[in-house]
């Protein structure tokens, strides 16, 4: 049964990828990207990677196609055809790279083999001891936030850098920051009344669900990354239906920009706190007398930092794109 589901999902993924290559219109490719994200999320659920599926469903199927749509609304929906040029060199390069990648997979252990290196190195220790050492049932959270806290710090900094880069590229000299919308009233000629009414009942629950995912991440699928993207999706949905000026009055751009740095700061300060006590960076044992309690506090604090940064960077990026759309698109 699971094999059948796997085969169907994977063939749908391949079909979508092929369609993505063949289709010409930019709007259609964006929709296909979104479908690809949704299919990947379903596939991750089948693989028991629910934590990743959460993020993929929100970012891959939701937020990133939205950002692409906003860009297409500014630059136009048709791809420029380069007349007559045959990109032989590019095709050759792509073919060679693809062939090398496929050759590379031949060395990989068979899917799901018990003696694959990934299952022999540190994974057994995480699976056997993480419950005792951190007191947290969800192994993904304890690996991400405690054993591999350095890597996660790196990821958070990457996300923060992405937000900074978007502001640097898209913010012009006149508006310093992600969005400084003109206070002109929203065009009320064609309001999305039904969408607004329905979304108004849903958004509070989306935000509540984000908090649930954030603080329940120790016990079930979830954590800072997932909560951040869900929270940002709720905010972005509001922004889509009520316009950029309205959402900027609710959540002011300077505050979000500050928050995106604040999350990284919370994470880093947690690490430095342990250094001040003479322990290694990000060693949580200084946070409380009981080691398990200390682990739990540390994981909660850095997950909070991750959540704050992810949510605010996504909102910042949305603001920057939507601001471009409102100033150039209309």
């Amino acid at each position: 049964m699971e094999l059948a589901v796997n085969i169907v999902l994977l063939s749908l993924l391949v079909t979508t990828a092929a369609a993505l290559v063949l289709v010409r219109g930019l709007l259609a490719s964006i929709m296909l990207t979104s479908i690809y994200g949704l299919l990947s999320a379903s596939f991750f659920v089948i693989m028991d990677a629910v934590d990743v599926a959460f993020t993929e469903a929100a970012v891959g199927a939701g937020v990133s196609p939205l950002l692409l749509l906003l860009s297409v609304a500014v630059i136009g929906r048709h791809e420029a055809r380069n007349a007559g040029a045959r990109p032989l060199f590019a095709v050759l390069l792509v073919g060679i790279t693809g062939a090398l990648l496929i050759v590379g997979t031949l060395d990989m252990p068979a899917f799901g083999r018990a003696d694959a290196p990934a299952h022999l190195h540190v994974a057994p220790r995480y699976l056997l001891l993480s419950g005792e050492e951190t007191g947290i049932p969800n192994v993904v959270t304890s690996v991400l936030a405690s054993y591999r806290a350095y890597d996660t710090l790196g990821e958070v900094i990457v996300i923060f850098t992405a937000g900074v880069a978007v502001i640097l590229i898209l913010a012009s000299g006149t508006h310093r920051g992600s969005a400084r919308p003109h206070s002109a009233p929203v065009d009320t000629k064609d309001p999305h009344t039904i969408l607004q009414v329905v979304s108004k009942t849903m958004i509070p629950f989306m935000l509540l669900f984000a908090f649930y995912v954030q603080f329940h991440g120790d016990y079930g699928p979830g954590g800072g990354f997932q909560a951040g993207v869900i929270f940002a999706s709720g905010i972005i949905l509001y922004g889509l239906l009520y316009g950029l000026p309205a959402i900027c009055r609710v959540i002011r751009p300077p505050v979000v920009e500050l928050c995106s740095a604040l999350g990284v700061l919370v994470y880093g300060v947690t690490g430095i706190l342990s250094m001040l006590q003479g322990r290694p960076f990000l060693d949580y044992s200084v946070l409380a007398d009981d080691p398990i309690r200390a682990q739990q506090i540390g994981i909660m604090v850095i997950e909070l930092g991750v959540g704050i940064t992810v949510a605010s960077v996504l909102i910042v990026i949305y603001y920057a794109f939507a601001n471009q759309f409102e100033t150039n698109g209309n």
Partner: peptide
């Protein structure tokens, strides 16, 4: 509950976008 709310709304959004 979510499907009952969201599914008709998304159909409406599609139809309205197409009309516009």
């Amino acid at each position: 509950l979510f499907v009952l709310l969201s599914s008709p709304t998304s159909s409406h959004a599609l139809a309205k976008a197409a009309w516009n």
